[in-house]
Design a protein around this nucleic acid. Structure first.
Lengths: 164, 164
DNA sequence: GGGAAATATCTGACAAGTCAGATACTGTTG
DNA sequence: CAACAGTATCTGACTTGTCAGATATTTCCC
């Protein structure tokens, strides 16, 4: 994973080990999202992005989460979250409640339907993760790969904490 | 990376190891794309997606690549590629030539400006990859992580080869 | 306390992809 | 060799996200 030659042609850029590695990360993530997201859509009628938001809300529990927090968890603009939550609310998956401690804010939380939907979607999702994400990797690598993802994910989160 | 309990609440789904691992893959990929893509945009005025297409074309060399091949490399619909290449052509980065062997097809290839741009963007990109993607990982893990990405990327590619 | 700066959310205008159907050529087959 | 299924690309209608600016509160100081 080292390549110190200076890049001076398109062909060199295209073969560069680091560029390739990063491209593979993006490619694998995109394709897996495409496939697993489609499965969730077919099974539960919600997009992968909505599913991710349901998960985030499931993690945050009763009180609910402000819109901005959702924007930061997923990499979304606050305007994007407004519209996404609009649609999720229209679909009956979540509800917006007033934030008692801050009248500007709204707390978003799961409805009963949202809770059921995330459970149902998750069962499908886990099977697909096993099949398409875990199984291709050599068993001896899985533990370390998961750890590295944790590290990377954590580092990347620090990278865009607030200054959105 | 194992978790065999059946999922029956949103909170359980949200804590599930496999779901978390997959979420971290997506989260890390999204955030890194956001940050590194922005850098390319600022430096060269092209989106990360355009950059990826330039790389693909750099890899394919002289003859050029049909639109459909680009669609398969990136996970894009053919309609999406038409429009993306429209914009890239308008920006002078690529050109469409007739395919001598198939009058339906068009071969897309880099222009001189496209070539220069991909080289310039790649230099920035490599530095950012080192900083944000390589450095956070323990040095002893990097080799294996790169290999696992290769495996995953390859497996995911097989998953959506043609049946788009 | 009073007002400036910061923060949370929403909205109009826009950008960029998807999807399904149109169009134009290719290749196969009876 | 004509018909037909298959393939490559393009297009109109639409979905969904971004960006920048508006609005309502809150926080921080003087």
């Amino acid at each position: 994973m080292v390549d110190e030659a200076p890049i001076s042609t398109a062909a060199e850029a295209a073969q560069h080990e680091l560029i390739l590695a990063f491209g593979r990360l993006q490619g694998a993530a995109n394709r897996l999202e495409h496939v697993l997201g489609r499965a969730i859509e077919v099974e539960c009628g919600i997009s992968h992005l909505m599913y991710e938001v349901l998960l985030i809300l499931g993690r945050s529990g009763e009180p609910g989460l402000p819109m901005g927090a959702i924007a930061r968890e997923q990499v979304l603009s606050t305007g994007g979250v407004t519209r996404l939550v609009d649609r999720m609310e229209a679909a009956g998956l979540v509800e917006r409640a007033a934030d008692p401690g801050d009248r500007r804010g709204r707390l978003v939380r799961l409805t009963e339907l949202g809770e059921q939907t995330v459970v149902r979607a998750s069962r499908v999702h886990v099977e697909n993760i096993k099949r398409y994400f875990v199984e291709p990797l050599p068993a001896a690598h899985r533990e370390q790969f998961a750890e590295d993802l944790r590290i990377l994910s954590h580092a990347a989160k620090e990278l865009l904490p607030r200054p959105s």
